[in-house]
């Protein structure tokens, strides 16, 4: 464990806590893409299959449980909670995310560390996480004004993988045999997808103005 990865995990946890706060405090999920949340739930479920077979550390196990439980709770809430589901922007959240599922799965069948069930699903979860934010970013562009908590949520979500890139650079310097090409290249793509969001987020922060994404 190194500081970059720890900060990355904490940033990821903060983004989830912000989303839970928004949904719990405002009883609303306006501006949040259910499709992105469903993709994240699938990312965690397919990545943490080793939850009960490989014990790495208490921290690792606890964080995996938190990520799985929170992502499922958010999806459940957005689908079933009477107040929350009414505020879901169904007509704006129209990204065809099934293509993302299919593309990630096909890529995982081609590119993986080992052709084994758990490894192919692990690679699938890595590729899927890289593109899972797309429905959310498209929804933000369509909904125009972005409320504060949603903006913070997406910002921390993008920042976490950026910190992981520093973690991979650090681990490479510590041990040149350390290569995680699949995670690293996907992480770069994932962070790059946030580039324009980060730009408009920075502009809104500099001008102390509301976050506006161009349509």
């Amino acid at each position: 464990m190194n500081i970059f990865r720890f900060l990355g995990d904490m940033t990821h946890l903060i983004s989830i806590l912000i989303l839970l706060l928004k949904i719990y405090a405002t009883k609303s999920c306006s501006g949040i893409s259910l499709k992105t949340q469903e993709l994240y739930a699938l990312v965690f479920l397919t990545r943490y299959l080793d939850l009960f077979t490989d014990f790495i550390s208490v921290y690792n196990t606890v964080m995996k449980l938190v990520f799985i439980a929170s992502s499922l709770a958010i999806v459940w809430c957005m689908r079933n909670h009477p107040l929350v589901r009414r505020s879901y922007d169904k007509q704006l959240d129209t990204f065809r995310h099934y293509f993302l599922l299919l593309a990630s799965f096909l890529l995982a069948l081609l590119l993986h560390e080992k052709f084994a069930f758990q490894e192919v699903l692990w690679a699938f979860s890595i590729y899927l996480e890289a593109v899972a934010i797309l429905p959310q970013l498209v929804l933000l562009q369509r909904s125009g004004n972005v409320d504060n908590l949603t903006g913070q949520y997406v910002f921390f979500l993008g920042a976490y993988r950026a910190l992981y890139i520093f973690n991979w650079i650090y681990r490479y310097f510590i041990d040149p045999h350390f290569t995680r090409w699949i995670a690293c290249v996907s992480g770069l793509v994932q962070t790059a997808l946030y580039a324009d969001f980060f730009y408009y987020y920075f502009i809104s922060w500099k001008n102390n103005a509301k976050l506006q994404l161009p349509a």
Binding site: D9, D50, I56, M63, K114, Y164, D175, F178, R180
Partner: peptide, 10 residues
């Protein structure tokens, strides 16, 4: 160090 494809990261 965990072997290569041990996924010790979240």
């Amino acid at each position: 160090l965990p072997e290569e494809n041990d996924h010790d990261e979240l």
